[in-house]
Amino acid sequence: MNAREVVLGRVRRALADVPAEETPERVAVERTYLDSHQPADAVALLAENLADYRAVVHRASGAALPGLVAELLAGRGAASVVVPAGLPAGWLAAVPPRVRRVADEEAVTARELDAVDSVVTGCAVAIAETGTLVLDGGPDQGRRRITLVPDHHVCVVRVPEQVVDSVPQGLRRLDPGRPLTWISGPSATSDIELNRVEGVHGPRRLDVVLLGSQS
């Protein structure tokens, strides 16, 4: 008997008390919890919760976005930036040519990425109640590692259309078949006497730009 049969056999013997006619669906799960906690202004709550976890939040209209992105990269002294294949061309239009663009390609090694200063991406969805950005590897987000290895991440959220209230609403918008990264503030640890320290292995600086029709 192989290990699979051993384990499944043990599970079935352990559940001898479960009536044969009981199907999984007959074990009641009452979903009386809230689908949303009904924030009055989801975008404002997203901004508040992101800031609470030490992300730096900015608002911009479409016209102001390129200038803001250039300013954020310059503020970090970035000499290079990773660019996902499908990032709207205009987003980096005001970044001077001396800032080296690194394409998100499979051939780029982790060590090469480690030498890059910043990354600019979009996102798949943002969750207001928890202050969470979710990336799903879409064309304006790229491979998972590009938002991990560089020390500075600029993430653009289209508001209000990409913002949902709650975790249940967020999950419904996501495709489980894609690799997903949920980000709630920059990397952090509380392992030393429970003092929160921002920035261990992921980007130590997270700038979030809420891109709307008005700024």
């Binding site: 928890t130 690799p179 997903l180 990264t181 709630s184």
Partner: peptide, 15 residues
């Protein structure tokens, strides 16, 4: 004791 932890990874097989 956070609304959400900083990072959550989800993957399905290989990509």
């Amino acid at each position: 004791a956070e609304r959400m932890n900083p990072y959550t990874s989800m993957w399905t097989g290989t990509t």
